[in-house]
Design a protein around this nucleic acid. Structure first.
Lengths: 231, 231
DNA sequence: CCGAGTTATGGTCGAGGTGACCCCAACTGC
DNA sequence: GCAGTTGGGGTCACCTCGACCATAACTCGG
């Protein structure tokens, strides 16, 4: 097996999700290559010889979304390596899933912007470059699934937060309406999910009782899990 | 971003699991490189320019374990890309998880053999090459987790099988003892998990009532899931 | 100031899943 | 025939869940 038959390039592509206006949004950028004009793509970077995969993903997030490491949750999603996924050259792409609160999600890179993920399935949706149309559904499904059995939902909100804000995350990511009382019972029943802090959040313009504030608890896994309805 | 800073080699490593003697076993091989003498490694291959990642994993499984595509379940696990994971060169490795029934697991490659995974944690355990000591626990945990909410356990048995054989898979992979009656109730309650076939399996030498035979059902996901005890 | 609307929080109740446990069926070996 | 073993079916207490109701605490219009 000679080296000539096994050299190829490795890239990272990051699917950055956030919740805006009660809806799940995804960061997309315009590719640099003029051949791909009119298409949108996930922010990505080639992996350099002297950096690990996670480092490259953090670099892509910093250069293309203006986010530093502590501002976003980042985890590896899956690797896509079909021979012809990039028509220009053989490139294996390690996809990452990133989550960030809305307040920190302010892309400054030209051509970058957040798109409602519901608009990706609708007719007239923007076309995605490479095989990113396959990566995006995988990333969304991973996020939806991990909300069930991990405390990942807190990565979408800033501390301190109310249970209504946390519930809004679940509703936006899953695309369902949840009963506030049952949601509260399940969150409080999951040991170490959230911890109460003093003070309350003022109600919105419509009124309502002030909500208590919480911060992230030490739990990584949720016991019992927060299962999606309609299984 | 010049090409010179982003070229590296891509490999696949396969963690092939099977159940032997009521215990979970892992296929390990002796690396070709004499520098790594005395260490064991997961079977792996460089990815060629003209093959996809899944194709390379299938090829590794065929060349190093003698298994063809329909004989084993194969799925991507995770990609490991630390800069110094291979001291000889920068190699990014896409790890795969493979499951196969015992009857089909007969490695003919010299230096290849199945090892009880419990022996990997015990003192005096064989050392693993590269970062395979990190890949193996990830593979085992993935298998343990997927038994909970998918029908993957049937990949460890040949059809037709009895519920005792299926229960033996869960007990070997999870390392726990399960109540036969409760196990049966949960399996039969998961729609489409297993389907009955005619006939019975003869009892073992100790006697006992003959067990009914089953084959795989159409279900991919289990509803409700088969949860591990002691959560 | 008052009452309607709104939101947060708390509680109840029945349906269904779970583990612990018991019993019977059907086989082997002595 | 009898003891031992394994498969298959059932019972029961406990827990979690969704659906639903009740109360608390605030805003807003009059």
């Amino acid at each position: 097996m000679s080296a000539a038959t096994s050299i190829c390039a490795v890239a990272v592509d990051v699917a950055l999700l956030t919740v805006r206006d009660q809806r799940l949004h995804l960061l997309l950028v315009e590719p640099d290559d003029p051949v791909l004009a009119g298409l949108l793509a996930l922010p990505g970077r080639r992996v350099r010889d002297d950096e690990g995969l996670d480092d490259a993903a953090h670099r892509a997030l910093g250069e293309l979304a203006g986010l530093q490491a502590p501002d976003a949750h980042l985890e590896q999603l899956r690797t896509y390596g079909e021979v012809s996924r990039d028509p220009r050259a053989r490139v294996v792409s390690v996809a990452y899933l990133a989550l960030t609160p809305t307040a920190r999600a302010a892309p400054t890179h030209p051509g970058a912007g957040f798109l409602d993920v519901a608009a990706l399935d609708a007719p007239g949706a923007p076309r995605l470059a490479y095989d990113h149309g396959r990566i995006v559904p995988d990333a969304i499904e991973r996020a939806r699934a991990k909300l069930e059995y991990t405390a990942l939902a807190t990565a979408f909100v800033t501390e301190p937060f109310t249970l209504a804000e946390l519930r809004g995350v679940y509703e936006a990511v899953w695309g369902v309406a949840l009963d506030p009382a049952n949601f509260r019972r399940k969150v409080m029943g999951a040991a170490g999910f959230v911890l109460p802090v003093s003070g309350t959040a003022p109600p919105g313009r419509g009124g309502g009782r002030p909500a208590r504030r919480y911060r992230r608890g030490p739990a990584q896994r949720l016991h019992p899990p927060m299962l999606r309805p309609e299984r």
